[in-house]
Structures are given as C-alpha cells and as structure tokens.
Design a protein around this nucleic acid. Structure first.
Lengths: 337, 337
DNA sequence: TTGAAAGCGCTAACAC
DNA sequence: GTGTTAGCGCTTTCAA
C-alpha cells in the first residue's frame, strides 16, 4: 500500500535521487520531470517515512512533553500553548504522562530520547543532583517547568515565593489573626515538592516580617501547617472554627481550597463570612463555584511560551547564561477573604 | 556521547552481530562474551536507537492518540486509562491534540502514521465516507471513540441515545411540562456532532412516546431546542422562566448546564427549586458545585479499556465482525430535577 | 558459537 | 540536470 521513493522512481523512470529532489524542492531539476514526479507522487499517496528521515538527519521535528497528568486547566492550557508554539516552528508534540510516578517519568524520558525527539519539556517529580546527571546523560535539550530539579537545568517558572508572600500580606492586612496553611506533605517525601516548598517559605517569611513589626500590645499571628493527607479537610476545618480568632486558610492549590469550602458549607460555614480562604493557580473551575475564591493566578500560557522559546534556543545551541526564566504572577481577587 | 552497537562491538573486540545477540538475548552465544558485552553496554549507557529499530522491524511499539483537548475529566481519565492498558502490553502512548480543528486532526494522524505508530485511537471531529476513505488509506489500525465516522470504522462508544431517552423519561415523570434542550449547533456545521445528535434523537423519541400515551385532557409536552451559540445562556434562561409551565433543561454536556445554573443563580433562581436541569457526562467538577447536578454518567475508563482492547485485536489481525463496541451508561442522581 | 552481507527508506557528497 | 555511491543504526539471513 505504502509507496516508497524507490518505487516512485521506477514508475517515473528516473533515479531515486531525482525523485528526492523533486519532493524536497532542492537542487537543480528539470521543471517537467519535477512536475511529473509530483503528480505521480500525489496519485500514489506517497508519504516520506519519517523514521528513515529521522535516522539519517538525526532530527525528527518532534518535541516531547512529559507531565504529571492532564486533568486541570494548568496542564491543559500548558499543552495547548506548547502545541501552538511548536507548530509555529514546524514542530509536532508528543505528550506523555508520568502520573506522579518517578520511575515512569524516567522511562518516558528515555523512550522519547531513544526516539530522537529534538527536545523535551518536563514537569518533574524527581529532583536532586543524581537526577540532574540523569537528565544531562540523556544528551537532549530539556527545559523543566514548575518543579525545579537542580541548578544548571534549564527552568521556567513563576515567582512562587514572592506571590505567596504577597498573598499572605493581603490576608494579614485584612485582619486575620490565625492562618492555616495547607499544602501537600513536604517532609519525608521522595517526590519533588519544590513549588509547594517555595509557597510555604513565602508564607513564613511574610508572617515573620509581620510579627516583627507588631506594636507592644498586639499579639503574634497564629499559624498552623496542615499536610494534605487523608483527612486534611476535617482537620483544617477544626482549626478554622475551634478558636475565637479570626481565621483564614491559605491553600497551595485551588483544589484543596475547594474541598475545604465544600466541606465547610456542609457545616453551614460560608467562606468570606465565617472564615477566610485563598487558593493558588486560578484554575478554570473557579468560575463555577460560589463564593468566588481568592487565588493567585498562574500565567500558564506564558510559562508554556517561555519554555518553548527557551527550548528552541537550546536546540539551536544559542543557550547562554543560566537559562532560568521566572515569571511574575498576581493575586486574583475574590469574595473569600 | 551516545554509543552505538557498532562501537560497542569494537570495544569488546567482537562483531556487531554478537553484540546484538547479547543485547537481545537471542540465538546461541558464549555466556562469557555475553556477560562482557552486557557489562560494557551498561558502562557506556548503551541505548538502542528506536528509529533504526522501527525502520527495520516496521513496528514501533507506540500507539498514537488523537483527541480534541484534554481539559476535562473525560479526556484526562481516558488518557490515563489508555496509557495503563497500553503499558501493560509493552506499548507507549503518543498523545496529540487537534483542538477541534479538522485539518489539524488530519495532520496529526498523518504525522503519527508517517512515524509508524502501530495503531491509533481517535476522537474525531471529522466524519463521512470521504473521511472513512482517508482513514483507511492510512493503512494503520484505528479505533474511534465518541463520535462515529462511518460504518466500517472500528468504534467504541456508549449508548448515547438510550441514555438520553431514559433521562428524558425521568424529567417527564417528575412532572415537568416543558423541556429546553441545549446542545452545540447540529445543523450547518461541518464538524462531527454525532454524539450530540444521538442525544437529541433519544430526547425526541422519549418526548414523542410520552405525548402518544397522554390522556385526553392532558396537554402535550412543550419542547424548545437551543443551540449553544453565543448568548445561549441568556436565551435558555428566558425560556426557563418566561412561562407558567414547570420547565426543565436538558443539556448535552455538563459544562453547558453549569453555565446556565450559574447565570440563573445570579437572577436568584435555584436549580431543583425554580427549574429543573440535567447535564451529561458526569465530569469531576460536579463534586464542587451546589446544588448537585443531575447527569448521565459516562464510563470513560471502560471506553478506554475497550478501545485499547479492540485496537490490539486489530493490530494482531484478529479483527472479526463489525468491530463496534457500545457500552451502557447510567443516570447519576442529583438535586436539580 | 560467531561473522559477513544485505536491506529497511531516506539523505548527502560527489561524479557524470 | 541527473545518477551513483555510501551511510544513518538496526535486524535478518545465510554461511563459516
């Protein structure tokens, strides 16, 4: 069924080379034979074998993308944006999922590299020096996004810490006396939690700063950190109302925040009225939930664009400096603080 | 950096063939040389070139997936499930997005085929005989899901029409006298809307059946069909309250339903109390929205599993009969009817 | 038990 | 303008 260039050549009574010239429009070639070949090629539905081409050119015009999953606005928009940017440059995208499994992530990367993708965009759950060496051993341009792996690995991200600090300041300025900080388990975990660690640090810095500036008679802000384990919703909610202090909750992800809001609503407690709450990322779903959640907007499209731009610079050997891009992000107001 | 089998052979002082035998563990080979080779291979981080292998074997152990987008539970869970099933069989998955663009869909398919994926799972926006021929001309096993293309193309789906009929019966039994049916534009559209058409037909059949069985004094059910165009929310809402009849809304997608609920809430109208509404698919987001939306649950994982199973049957040449798999799906109760 | 040779379908370098 | 030759890295066939 599939026609090869060789067969085409036979049909047209010319050499393989001439066919090649006609198809790739390179070199000197007789206009008539060229047209004949192109016509024939169309007739038989000739399509070049990209494996063969990739093998000889050492370039496949594919970039690989390895991400956690895909079920949220963040990755979805990221992937769309990466796709667009890649296509603009004549590249296609091969998306694979690692589902938060460190070994799977490695496998996917190796497989992509073995297939000679020209570059990779990676949102990793691995980290550290050892992994850095692994990535470098792949000998393929890689740009990481979100979680940082180690110094020296190209990296695109947002100003996590700064954003968390600013959000915390907003909470404090609104007069909350206690803050419950909810994030995934950061200790005793093997997976990369860089993003959430940064957010925690920003939070802690802002609180420390605030306490330092207090008047004599004012008391320090009360803080509690809760791991998003089994039962985190219940324990967070207890913290939220077993106190006389005005209490707010800072979640390092919008989904955690929504879970809490939902549970609290079941108890008759309304966000913004009975307690404060803020999320992180600004996922689409927020448009459908009342009251409107305060959050920190994560500019995914920009992250994607920058990642692709950086990747192409690496692929073209134009890399210079430390190849880190950190984007700004802003608080998106809501009704829950 | 990257070592080839040839170089390995030189290092070990054997022929390329012996290396190959050691690596693939085939044929007779001296145990000692084999161990030496494997050891060396590990040291240099030898990895087979999958392009070269694919070229000669005519098999890549990749399956391609082409879907609309990725930003909802449906596709997300679909992709995870496809990934799992494929991995169980030693295959990897290459996911690409067509973003509801018919030309892009074709491009992605061609590209995948040119890269010799061994099979494809496709959720299409194209349809008809011409497209069927296109798909067949690709000469690669393809399984379609969701939208049907044409007879003769392997197809996995749910019982759209039956589910819509049953849902309509539920609405009618609850005493609603008017139903507003909301779906994407089905006429004058080039893209494949099979799924939504089926749902519409199921709805219409149920209404017709109901009207046929009415007593003398009872009046027929009133129905309105609204295209999900610009402004569909407003027009739907007008239909919902510019009448004295008890009115319900049947949306062929949960998202449409949520849009309407949100707008109505802005007008002080609560679903389940002031009007009825039901969606379709059972997306995750529903867990976070109050009141709980009535919907029809779409069993994605099963669809994915069946699609992969069917695809592997096709790839192994075990295809028999018409290769259509239709799964059951059920109404998921909520508070909005 | 090992090796040599041919070929997958394509591109690149050089000759005619 | 066109054809020949060689080679990408691997697998397969056949001979030693």
């Amino acid at each position: 069924m599939a026609v090869t260039a060789k067969e085409l050549a036979q049909m047209c009574g010319v050499s393989r080379m001439t066919v090649h010239r006609a198809l790739t429009d390179t070199g000197r070639i007789n206009q008539q034979t060229k047209e004949l070949i192109l016509k024939k090629a169309k007739e038989c539905g000739y399509r070049p074998d990209l494996l063969a081409r990739g093998l000889v050119k050492g370039q496949t015009f594919y970039i690989g993308v390895v991400v956690l999953d895909v079920n949220n606005r963040y990755f979805s928009q990221l992937l769309s944006a990466i796709g667009m940017e890649a296509r603009r440059r004549g590249y296609f995208v091969n998306i694979t999922l690692h589902e938060e499994n460190k070994e799977m992530e490695k496998e996917q990367l190796e497989r992509l590299v073995d297939y000679h993708v020209d570059g990779v965009i990676l949102s990793s759950v691995n980290q550290g020096e050892e992994y850095r060496e692994f990535l470098q051993s792949l000998d393929t341009p890689i740009v990481t996004i979100g979680n940082k792996i180690a110094d020296g690995i190209p990296f695109v991200s947002i100003q996590e810490k700064k954003a968390a600090r600013e959000a915390t300041e907003v909470i404090l300025q609104k007069g909350y006396e206690k803050i419950v900080f909810v994030c995934p388990p950061l200790e005793q975990t093997e997976t990369n939690t860089y993003v959430h660690q940064q957010r925690l640090e920003g939070f802690q810095e802002a609180v420390a700063e605030w306490n330092r500036k207090l008047d004599q008679e004012q008391s320090e802000v009360d803080t509690v950190i809760i791991d998003r384990n089994e039962g985190f919703v219940e324990s967070t909610c207890e913290e939220l109302y077993q106190t006389e202090k005005r209490t707010a909750c800072f979640c390092t992800g919008d989904m955690f925040a929504l879970d809490i809001m939902k549970y609290m609503e079941g108890q008759g407690r309304i966000a913004g009225r009975d307690y404060g709450i803020i999320g992180f990322d600004g996922i689409d779903m927020l448009n459908y939930v009342a009251p409107r959640l305060y959050t920190i907007y994560n500019p995914v499209e920009e992250v994607a664009k920058e990642a692709v731009k950086l990747l192409f610079r690496l692929m073209n050997g134009e890399a210079e400096g430390d190849n880190t891009v950190i984007l700004n992000c802003q608080i998106q107001e809501g009704e829950t603080l």
